[in-house]
Computed example of a mutant assay.
Amino acid sequence: MEYSGFFNGDQEYGQDEFSRYFDNIYESGVSINEDNNMTLQVNKCDSGVQVDKGFSIIKGFYLYNDSIKNIGILKDSNYDRIDRVIIRLNLNSKKVSIDVKKGIPSSNPEVPSLQRDNLVYELSLAQIKVPKNGEMVIVDERYKKELCGAIRPKNLTEFNSMIEGFTNQFNKWFEAQQAKGWRNVFIQNTTPEKVVPGSIWIQI
């Protein structure tokens, strides 16, 4: 079945049409500000962490945070823990929000995995290492495109993939040529040795 849009008139457009449109144009991620820095940075504050202003596109939907958001982080009394500050798209609740995804307290804590299915999709802004004692440590994850990344055109990613494919093909061909030798031009009296077919010998 074919779909098209957007036109004036009786046709109505909704969530599916707009999210499909933008999801086919942009990779999910966060915006870049005028200083060429990624927005929605996570910093420590007295009660936990705070997330700076910024904009994000996630699977064709958007989040706009127009003020600093404070999020409380409570320590576990017995064990260390690793949390994640995430952007979560929830199609069930029709909402995109900044949340903390709590890890499991443990003597050897692991980072909570991101949920990515047909109802929920998550991007990670940062890991929060929450020790039972001492200072929290924030690990920025916005720069990892498999976890978050910057908003960028999808065709740019496809172009880079195409160039990578061409490069791989050339490298395979080049390695094969090196293995069997190169055709050369020989200018000498004696018959050249170990000549690759197609080489030229000019006898002087």
Rank of each mutant, 00 (worst) to 15 (best):
F6Y: 15
F6Q: 09
F6A: 07
F7L: 12
N8P: 03
Y13M: 00
Y21I: 00
D23C: 03
D23P: 01
N24L: 07
N24W: 06
I25K: 11
I25V: 15
Y26L: 06
Y26C: 01
E27Y: 06
E27K: 10
S31T: 02
I32E: 08
N33R: 13
N33L: 04
E34D: 13
D35H: 07
N36C: 09
N36M: 04
Q41I: 14
V42T: 14
K44Q: 15
C45I: 12
D46L: 13
D46W: 00
K53Y: 02
G54M: 10
G54S: 07
F55S: 01
K59P: 05
S67T: 06
K69S: 08
I71D: 02
G72A: 12
L74D: 13
L74K: 14
L74M: 05
L74Q: 13
S77N: 11
D83P: 05
I86S: 11
I86D: 09
I87E: 00
R88P: 12
N92P: 04
N92Y: 08
K94T: 09
D99R: 13
K101E: 09
G103M: 03
P105I: 08
N108R: 10
P112F: 03
S124E: 14
A126N: 02
I128D: 15
K129H: 12
G134Q: 01
I138A: 06
V139P: 04
V139M: 07
D140K: 09
E146N: 14
L147D: 00
C148N: 05
G149C: 06
A150E: 11
I151D: 02
K154S: 04
T157H: 09
E158P: 06
M162P: 00
T167L: 10
W173E: 08
A176T: 06
A176R: 02
G181M: 02
N184V: 02
V196G: 02
S199G: 05
S199V: 10
I204S: 10
